[in-house]
Write a protein that binds this DNA or RNA. Structure first.
Length: 111
DNA sequence: GCCATGACGGAGC
DNA sequence: TGCTCCGCCATGG
């Protein structure tokens, strides 16, 4: 699970009131394109670690959920709202506004 | 060891 | 904007 340690580290560094997409976390965790593993990894460790997993959402800006989660989506949304993240009528957030982005490193959105 | 599934992403229609 | 299909990797039966 060492490789996932990077994922946990990234998620753990997500600041208050901001969110990150699985793809973004995957990229920052040196796992480009493996967004699925990020979600899977979080699913396996979330309840067992002190990680703000509720700040990790999908590229659609919507809080992902699973039949097994059964209601945790409500909790995640509540936590995000408590941090100042506003949800629209479709239950999605404005990624352009709440998406977490590193101050300045090597990664740039575009040119 | 193989098969099916899954907190996703991106491209196509 | 919304839905569908494909790809990628790890886990569980």
């Amino acid at each position: 699970m060492s490789k996932y340690d990077a994922i946990y580290a990234i998620v753990r560094e997500i600041p208050y009131g901001q969110v990150a997409t699985y793809g973004q976390v995957a990229d920052l965790a040196n796992l480009p394109g493996h967004a699925r593993l990020v979600g899977y990894a979080l699913f396996r460790v979330a309840p067992d670690a002190d990680i703000p997993w509720h700040r990790v959402i999908n590229a659609k800006g919507e809080v992902s959920e699973s039949p097994v989660r059964y209601g945790s989506d409500h909790l995640q949304r509540s936590l995000l709202e408590a941090e100042g993240v506003q949800f629209n009528a479709k239950g999605r957030v404005n990624l352009s506004r709440y998406r977490w982005q590193k101050p300045y490193d090597h990664e740039t959105p575009d040119s």
